[in-house]
């Protein structure tokens, strides 16, 4: 059972020094309203866990938290899109924890699925060997990475019902795995529908994983936001 709350109420679940997972992919399919609310609330020293930094060029979506200097640690696979974040990492204002993208996602999946580690061959023969423990399975060398969990996950879905059942539209990105791996899971949706309106086979994340629902932009509003962004950055 999930509870619908406002973005202002939802942001109170995140405190100074909280670890926060943010769904989406380099700015696409991110929870726009909740990110704005975190920026407005001025919560500090956050550990942000996100597959990559914000939209290319910085200052947009997660990039707003970077500009506000609200992040003390970034757990990710890629920061190349946000020059402001790179500067803060170089200046040691932000601690960076990298893993290869597939490993990053599996670490979160392990964190949510009650597994003790991720064991992967990816990164063997590179600097990544120094970021993990080496183990041998059936005579083959692998890297052992620890699971990742967070205090709060802020994810994005297209719509949900009052039970917290989520339906995604387009790429669901990191939201389905993050939904499993935090103590508190907040979903931002385009619309809220009645129980039964989402056919059971279309439920991408079952409500058991979701604690709070916030109403984000409507689909049409979000489409307008991205059209503007893509046109302004010569991508459309």
């Amino acid at each position: 059972m999930a509870v619908q709350i406002t973005t202002q109420e939802a942001v109170k679940k995140i405190r100074d020094k909280s670890s926060v997972m943010i769904g989406g992919f380099l700015g696409a399919a991110v929870p726009l309203k909740m990110i704005d609310e975190i920026a407005t609330a001025g919560i500090k020293e956050l550990t942000v866990i996100s597959i990559g930094a914000g939209y290319r060029g910085g200052g947009v979506d997660i990039g707003k938290l970077v500009l506000n200097k609200q992040i003390s640690k970034y757990v990710t696979s890629h920061v190349g899109t946000d020059p402001n974040l790179i500067k803060q990492i170089v200046n040691q204002e932000v601690e960076l924890e990298l893993s290869p993208m597939g490993t990053f996602v599996e670490r979160i999946r392990a964190g949510g699925a009650g597994l003790g580690a991720v064991v992967t061959p990816v990164g063997m023969g590179t600097e990544v060997e120094e970021m993990a423990e080496k183990i041998i399975v059936d005579d083959k060398p692998y890297l052992l990475f620890k699971p990742i969990r967070a205090d709060v996950a802020v994810i994005k879905a297209h719509r949900c019902d009052p039970l917290g059942n989520l339906q995604y539209k387009g790429m669901s990105n990191t939201s389905p795995v993050m939904a499993t791996a935090a103590d508190i899971v907040i979903v931002e949706v385009d619309e809220i529908v009645e129980v039964g309106a989402i056919a059971c086979e279309n439920i991408g994340t079952p409500g058991i994983f979701v604690d709070y629902i916030v109403k984000g932009h409507s689909y049409q509003e979000r489409k307008n936001v991205y059209e503007e962004l893509w046109i302004a950055t010569n991508k459309l």
């Binding site: 992919f25 380099l26 700015g27 696409a28 399919a29 597959i51 939209y55 290319r56 899109t81 993208m101 996602v105 599996e106 999946r109 297209h158 995604y168 539209k169 387009g170 790429m171 669901s172 990105n173 990191t174 939201s175 389905p176 795995v177 991408g204 689909y219 979000r222 489409k223 936001v225 991205y226 059209e227 893509w230 046109i231 991508k235 459309l236």
Partner: peptide
């Protein structure tokens, strides 16, 4: 322009279309 979908993007977060028979899924 006007026909992009905010939930359909490539790995560089640029708008794309899906072809008939195409599939979308999560990163795992």
């Amino acid at each position: 322009r006007g026909e992009s979908d905010p939930d359909l993007a490539n790995a560089g977060a640029e708008p794309i279309t899906m072809l008939p028979g195409g599939a979308v899924f999560d990163v795992a």
